[in-house]
Simulated scan of single mutants.
Amino acid sequence: MSLLSYLLLAATAACCFTTLFALPMDGVATNRNCQCVTTSSSIIPTRLFQRIEILPPGAHCRKTEILITKKDNKTVCINPEAQWIKKILTKVMSKRSVKESSMPTVA
């Protein structure tokens, strides 16, 4: 390939990246596929939990989402920055790691 071809390819790539990064990341268009339109920081007692889902950022949504399905089948979106949910997740993860480390290994 000639030098001109490489320069044209580099200019095209630069334009594409500039356009990609110039778009707003937290705008309405990017959050259209998020499960949670609004989040709550209100404490929900763990005895009311039926299921908890943690959806990491990805192609569907650019932010972490935490969905709690309560025993009455209502789903509540929780603010991942809420201190009470951080404590619960820390407890669950520590119990999980203890449980995994006590399992016998198969050789």
Rank of each mutant, 00 (worst) to 15 (best):
I54Q: 11
A59H: 15
T30W: 01
S40L: 00
F17A: 02
T90A: 09
S102P: 03
N73K: 03
A107D: 11
I43K: 05
L8Y: 04
F49P: 04
V37P: 10
M103L: 08
S42P: 00
A13V: 09
Q35V: 12
K86G: 15
A11Q: 10
V76C: 08
L23N: 00
N73P: 00
S94M: 07
M25T: 01
K99H: 11
E53A: 08
A107S: 07
T12K: 06
K86P: 03
K70I: 02
Y6M: 06
A22I: 00
T64W: 04
S42N: 07
S42K: 14
T69G: 04
P24C: 04
L8I: 09
K70T: 10
S2H: 07
M1L: 10
K70N: 07
S42L: 07
F49K: 02
Q35R: 13
T69I: 04
S5Q: 10
M103D: 04
G27D: 11
A10G: 08
S97Q: 12
T90F: 07
W84K: 15
I78K: 05
T30I: 05
T38V: 02
F17T: 00
K74D: 11
K95H: 14
L7Y: 08
C61I: 02
P80H: 06
N33V: 01
T90M: 03
T105C: 02
L4T: 12
I54N: 07
L9H: 07
S42T: 09
S101I: 11
K63Q: 13
N73H: 03
P56G: 15
F21R: 01
Y6N: 09
I78A: 12
S94Q: 04
T105R: 08
N33Q: 14
R96Q: 13
A29C: 03
I54S: 15
S94D: 07
